[in-house]
Every structure is written in C-alpha cells, then in structure tokens.
Design a protein around this nucleic acid. Sequence first.
DNA 1: TTCATATATTTGTCACACTAACTATTGGTA
DNA 2: TACCAATAGTTAGTGTGACAAATATATGAA
Lengths: 149, 149
Amino acid sequence: MTQEQYSKYSFLLDRTARKVKQYAQQQFKTGDFDVTVDQWLVLKNLSENNLLSQTELANLVFKDHPTLTRIIDLLCKKGYVERVPHPQDRRSFQLHLTESGASKVVSLRPEIHQIREKAWENLSPHDFEEFKRILNTIYQNLNGESLDQ
Amino acid sequence: MTQEQYSKYSFLLDRTARKVKQYAQQQFKTGDFDVTVDQWLVLKNLSENNLLSQTELANLVFKDHPTLTRIIDLLCKKGYVERVPHPQDRRSFQLHLTESGASKVVSLRPEIHQIREKAWENLSPHDFEEFKRILNTIYQNLNGESLDQ
DNA sequence: TTCATATATTTGTCACACTAACTATTGGTA
DNA sequence: TACCAATAGTTAGTGTGACAAATATATGAA
C-alpha cells in the first residue's frame, strides 16, 4: 500500500462528510427545523438516554467537552434542554430534555430519516455494511488505544 | 432501505472524517510541519497547478470562497504563497507558490504519505476501491446537478 | 484534617464551513 | 456611451472542532 493514489481517500472522505452535513443542514433549514445537524445529534441521544452528564453524552456523540458545552448552551437557550444539578456531585449536571425538546425529537425524527436515505440511492445494503466496516476499521486504526465498539 | 439503522452512516462518516483529520493534524504538529491539514491540501494543489485563480483552486479542493480566502491569507503570511495580479483581469489573482512554498511541498510530501497510510492497516486494495466508489456515489447523490469527474 | 490528584465543566484562541452582504470589475447590450 | 447583469474576491456573523488552560469540586492517602 505504497502508491501515490492512496492519499486521496482523506480528500474524498472529508469532501463527502462535508457534503452530507451540508445537504442535511440545507434540508433542516428549508424545513425550519430550528436546530443544526450537530444539535440534532445531541437531542436525539438525549431522547434515548435521559439524565446523562455532559461527559457521558460527550462519549456517546464523540464530541469533545468544550464543543459539547457550547452545543448544550445553544439548546438551553432554545428551550430544548435543561441542566439539572447532579444531586450527589456538585461539579456535574444531569441533562434533561424539556417537553419542548422531546416533542421536537418526535416531530423531526421521521423527516430526518427521509433526508438521510437520499445518500443511499444506487447503493445496496451490502455496500452499507462494507461502508460501516471500513469506516470503523479506519477509526480504530487511528484511535491509538481503545476499541470502543 | 427504510430501516432505522440507516441513519447511522452519517454519524460514522462524520466521526471517521474528524478522526482522520485530527490524527493527521497531530502528526503535523509533532513534526513541526508549520501548516494545517487544509493548508497542506491547498499547497499540494498549487504545486501541481501553478498560477491558478482562487476560483479555479476553490473548485479543485472543493472549498468555498470565504474559506479559501482565509487559507490563502494564512499561507501568504507564512510566505508560502503569493497573490500575483492577473494581467488581464483586475478582479482576480494568480496564485503563485514561492520558493519556500515549493520546497515545503517537496519536503512534506513523503512524510504525509506515511501518515495517510496508517488508516489502511487491516484493509485491502479492494476495500480501498469500494470505499472510493461508495464515497463518490454518496457525494453525487447529494450534489444535485453536476457529476464533477 | 490536609494535601495531592483526579474529574466535570467552562473559557479562550485559532482554524474551518456556510450564508449573506459588499466592493470592484468585466462584458454584453440598448 | 450608458446601463446592467454576471463574476472575482473580501468581510462579517454564527456554528463547530481541536487544543490548552482555568475553575470548582471530589476523592484518596498521609
């Protein structure tokens, strides 16, 4: 694997990831979803897992702590999330989806599914499995220590 | 392709693209390369294609104009690139790699190859071809009009 | 108890992505 | 010639990502 051409994967990977995010964000915007793609990821994970700490949530969505702090700030401003003081540990918060946040997740979930499917035209379920396998292998190759599933 | 699980590709794609960039950036940093990953992409394309306009370069590297403006600004500050006024069109510039920029490209190219190869451990050349095919298909599915190569 | 160390979160800085608005210039057309 | 739409590039605003450092609290050992 010493050929010149092998450098191109990083370009294609970055380009495609940006396109996927950009496409979704445009659809979010025309649909007046009132959240960004990354804010949606956080909301979705909170809806499946209430009362997480910020650290736990950061590990779920693979964002670093400063980034997550700022996303939570924005979601709090919009009224979708609340920071509840942790009863035992005064350093940390339990993140709580508000009524408004919960209904936002319910209403957006099917629409976002449709948006996500668009990328898979002309591709097979087998392609999907291969894609996931390759992405996970690359991730683990570069991840140093842990295997995290 | 209507299953719940098909939403996950966007998460894995984003996560892996970030990891690839982060890994490379760390290596760039420990090697004192004095450029970011995106600045390298621009330098590399300039070295293969001198005297491009910013618009032409933007189309090559798939970055938007404001982003490219700032990357060029930084590369000019570092002395790797110059903006030469276009002889016929006073709106535009021809981008020119300086001596310093050209030798930077020569010295970094092999090191960056090594960094990029790390991602492909445990993967085959066939995986590489499949990966490129899937990435390009997704890109084109979302790209609306053009097929760009 | 007290101190060193670890953990949870925030803040600051720099780089990049996307949008919108703006300047300057060009080129076609009335 | 005078206008006007299109083009090249820049600037500003917001959101995100990575990294370093700061703050507050917790925990374990001396």
